[in-house]
Design a protein around this nucleic acid. Structure first.
Lengths: 197, 197
DNA sequence: TGTACATCAGTGAACGCGCGTTCACTGATGTAC
DNA sequence: TGTACATCAGTGAACGCGCGTTCACTGATGTAC
């Protein structure tokens, strides 16, 4: 072997991980491929030996980040997590202050909506999985209603974390996080709402 | 007068309006000044006669879009709007499908968090105003609690609209909007939650 | 065992292009005398 | 009334730069005979 077995796939993986971090930190449009490759210890020319286009990397990096967070979610669930600890695990200062290793939806959601169909379809598949996982944290009830509530909870925490990142007043930012937690609890555990007729 | 009175400020206003639309459609980072100026019927060189930098335009365009939506909100409130009609006025297919004339937060929130302090401070001021307006739609109660709920409602609708735009399945997108409306009603009208201790 | 060739991940320069920004200039209209 | 000059919004070319993408080449290691 010219390179040890798995060298090529390890290189590719490294590029995906760097991209997943940098896209979340700066947004997809603001990140250049030369910088990503340099961070991965390579030169720009090697990129197209691994990916067809920047859009293909966007799709892979997004899926990688979503898979990682899904694994974290499942792992913490195995430790007996409930809705409140999940909310607090998401809406906290550390997550707010480290978008590069955080939720890709909070960092990139509007941008995802402007990307290629394949990228949006990949996001859609992951979203469905996430909603299932969130629904599992809710008190037993009608499954359709649990899914609707879980979907709204996802929207709530994503929007709330974005708000906490956008405001310039640190104290207000903390209040936003806490308001999101309380609202998430009210939504998830509160008086059940009728499913849409 | 070489130009009719108000010509200069009218030109500036035209640039701001074009930018506010294009930023929301494509994201700030993906929009170039040459294109904005061309849409406003001008050439690139005229830009710096009106703005100090692209960042200054971003701040002005964001404020313009936020002011416009605030005015709409107040106008519809004068017509006797309640929480449900406000939620339906936001979480609907027309809004989802026309980001260029829609909520700047839904289109740009993660990006705002990466912009200059002045831009984030301007956003923060507008957010506070919005939260007050939303709180006014809630049943009378403790003001601090109404503010917290209103903040979460804002996060909920922003995140939900972004989700509806990002997914590639139109039917799922419609379900997301409806789930957001139901959750917004539950949050706003449902069992009151204690304020954080 | 030694030589010629194949493989292939990665290099680094180059492509055309658009970016944000600068600046000398235009030209229509005003004022000064 | 006529001429010289001031004003200023807008023009359009140019600046250096980084973008996504392409491609001829390198060099280390494998295989063939």
């Amino acid at each position: 072997m010219r390179y040890e077995k798995g060298h090529r796939s390890a290189t590719r993986q490294r590029i995906v991980e760097v991209a997943a971090r940098r896209f979340r930190e700066s947004g997809v449009a603001a990140v250049g491929l030369t910088g990503v490759m340099a961070d991965a210890g390579l030169t720009n020319g090697a990129f197209y030996g691994h990916f067809e286009s920047k859009e293909a990397l966007v799709c892979d990096a997004l899926c990688h980040a979503l898979d990682e967070r899904e694994a974290d979610f499942v792992a913490s669930g195995a430790a007996g997590a409930d809705l409140e600890s999940s909310l607090r695990g998401y809406l906290n200062a550390a997550h707010r202050d480290n978008p590069g290793i955080g939720c890709p939806s909070a960092a990139l959601l509007p941008e995802i909506g402007r990307h290629a169909d394949a990228t949006r379809a990949a996001f859609t598949r992951h979203l469905v999985t996430f909603v299932d996982l969130i629904a599992g944290l809710l008190p037993a009830g009608e499954p359709a209603q649990a899914h609707a509530t879980a979907t709204a909870l996802f929207g709530l925490v994503v929007g709330t974390l974005q708000l906490a990142r956008a405001v310039s007043d640190p104290q207000l930012s903390d209040q936003i996080l806490e308001a999101g937690i309380q609202a998430g609890l009210a939504l998830g555990l509160g008086a059940p709402v009728d499913a849409p007729s």
